[in-house]
Design a protein around this nucleic acid. Structure first.
Lengths: 123, 123, 123, 123
DNA sequence: GTGGTCTAGACCACG
DNA sequence: GTGGTCTAGACCACT
């Protein structure tokens, strides 16, 4: 279900976070659904449990999953991303660098808009 | 002219690269223009010359600047970013994470398109 | 495995790059093989880790090696040098100077051809 | 007569040395011919006299030119490159790196031989 | 443990 | 003066 890219520079734990969010976005996961235990997912992905734990910890911090003692880990009932201005600023900073690269490669505004729209709809 | 953010996670040398590109994109720098020497910019930015040198070397590798022996560093005459498929893939991967965040915050496709268009035109 | 010449003008990091490529060319290294960590090789060669890191980074930029986070560095799966016209021009310029020296020493075309053929087969 | 490439990484003085040798190799210059004074050539090439002087000094060291006080500088009567084993070793080292690059780009021995033959005959 | 980044200094070749 | 290279040491994020 989750596919990792080990060769790249994106941290493994971030890839896990992102793919859980993506599954949620696509409707493959719904509030209340159970997700594999840290150990189980670590086995499936061939990574160390610590890496999965770090991803889950961050997801829990963002209130996307909930851990219930001795029961397991579940998608939070009320998955509702808080629109945080700080976070928006961070995203803007990160995205600016990539937009700049695209612009310097010669892409027009329209092309970039199409580019992100394609990504958006694929999520 | 260049402002650095020391607090964060983005490497200093990448910030320098980005801001030189941005100045070029905005027309503040034009082909043939001299840019400050490694040492001078290092002093201005209060970083070590090695950090500036690393940024300049990467910019030269991308053919954005040219260094002339013992003369200084200049914006390349033919600033023309090569459209590299590998690079495009990397950019897409990086941008996907941010688009996903925006989508989960509840932004619509149109809003995201507007978001990136605003960034693009500000560059 | 790698032997450095500290006396000369060729940068250490370039020597490392060259010798890794040579080992690859000779078949002593194969795609997927691990190469020593930055620190380990730095110890072996009695140079600072930064120098080895610079060599590795350039090799990665050329897609000859891949680094996997916190795991180590490996020969890339698809080692396939891209034939870059710019690079070919640079090589031609560099080689021209040496061929000229040989010609002025009195070597004939045939002798020079034999000379480079011998080098080629020894790689 | 001499064309310099300022943008590159080859030292100016080496370019001057090389082009004098090339003119000699092509027969454009013959033993006994006068070559411009340091000042004159410096003016023609738009470089500082010190750079030309350095080139002439090296050419004189290699017995390719002779300076006659108050007369000027001339191509040496007996231009005869000494076949120096040390020098041959140095040339071999330098050329090996470039041959290796060509090999890794996928060029065959025959192609490399043709490559150098073309360069040789053009000199 | 791994690689990535940065500092503070030094020496060198070049023009 | 310029950029290029190297050392010695440090801190960080990731696994």
């Amino acid at each position: 279900m989750i596919e990792l890219d080990f060769s790249g520079h994106q941290p493994i734990y971030e890839q896990i976070i992102q793919q859980v969010k993506m599954a949620l976005s696509k409707g493959e996961l719904k509030p209340g659904d159970a997700i594999p235990s840290v150990r189980k997912m670590a086995l499936e992905l061939s990574v160390t449990p610590a890496t999965v734990a770090k991803a889950y910890q961050e997801l829990e911090r963002q209130k996307i999953i909930e851990t219930i003692r001795a029961k397991g880990t579940f998608i939070a009932a009320n998955v509702k991303m808080k629109v945080d201005d700080d976070k928006l600023t961070i995203i803007q900073k990160k995205i600016t660098g990539e937009i700049l690269e695209l612009k310097m490669m010669g892409y027009s505004v329209e092309e970039v808009k199409q580019f992100v729209a394609d990504i958006y709809t694929a999520l």
